[in-house]
Nucleic acid binder design. Sequence first.
DNA 1: CTGATTGCAAACACTTTGCAGCAGA
DNA 2: TCTGCTGCAAAGTGTTTGCAATCAG
Lengths: 173, 173
Amino acid sequence: MPDSPRILRDLPRVAIPSKQDAMPYEPVCALFRRYLHGQKLKFTPERAMILDAVLRKESLFDAEGLVDDVKQLGHRVSRATAYRTLSHLQDAGILKQVFLDNKQSYYEVIAGRQAYDYLICVSTGQVLEINSEKVRRLCEEICKEHGFDPLSHQLQIYAVSPEGQAKPAGGKL
Amino acid sequence: MPDSPRILRDLPRVAIPSKQDAMPYEPVCALFRRYLHGQKLKFTPERAMILDAVLRKESLFDAEGLVDDVKQLGHRVSRATAYRTLSHLQDAGILKQVFLDNKQSYYEVIAGRQAYDYLICVSTGQVLEINSEKVRRLCEEICKEHGFDPLSHQLQIYAVSPEGQAKPAGGKL
DNA sequence: CTGATTGCAAACACTTTGCAGCAGA
DNA sequence: TCTGCTGCAAAGTGTTTGCAATCAG
């Protein structure tokens, strides 16, 4: 019996916050500063704001949503800076990029959190987060078989939800 | 012990054909014609050429590569037509779209073939196809837990290959 | 001080779309 | 004939990049 997953999207591009505990800012910030220092990069106010906004995210988000969030917190950063910082945050191992469609990238915090996989209804567009230890183990097993050193994985399952089964026509992948 | 997987990409965007048996044209073509007919769409020479080129593909491919292939076969189609036909081929269940990066879409024939998952080396860019029955079963299990009706899935594992472990710096996801 | 960073706007690349002429069924 | 189809070129859109001014260390 799985713990009931939270709904991420009822429609594509509309993220609904989940209930996962937010990662505290301090430790991750320290991690980021350490990373930046090691790369001879600088810790700027913009990067701090972005990290703050990122850590408030409880589920998938995209670059534009992030810029909006920063604005909502009373600051502002350019899109360019947001993208550049997102890239650094990936390098620092704080978040990962998720490819769900061919329109844009999504991001997900991984520092101190478990990675999620996604169960996507092609009919309603609903997206469920699933947190499966089994998937993780299987990925590690596959890596081991090929002599690879596992880093992360991404699993999307396309299916039809109970609600979608009731609806007339099936959507496309 | 896994059967040794074929290398799909040594560098991003460069697909190397695998050894999988090509799907015969006739049966899939019949499938496509049936689909088109049912949708009151037409079976045109362009669509036939594209389907032909698609079925010669033995691994991941992208829209531009497809247009090139058609040209190499002595014909030509516009990019617009290629995209439109790829969309219909997806709807017909003949191929599926794969999202591996934020640059473009990849496609993969699924009609009469088994879906593959990917083991991606973030250091060298190498991509291995993996064909895991275990992954498929796990996805079905997850769907069942949530009352979803499984359609397809996509798994990407990001890791460092043995060769990549030798190289200096690790790439980013 | 000095090299990294920022915001802006232009550049990019893949994909989609409007349209006029063409062509399956 | 009557829709749907094609190619073209233009439009779209998320992301990246060149550049001058600015700022962190």
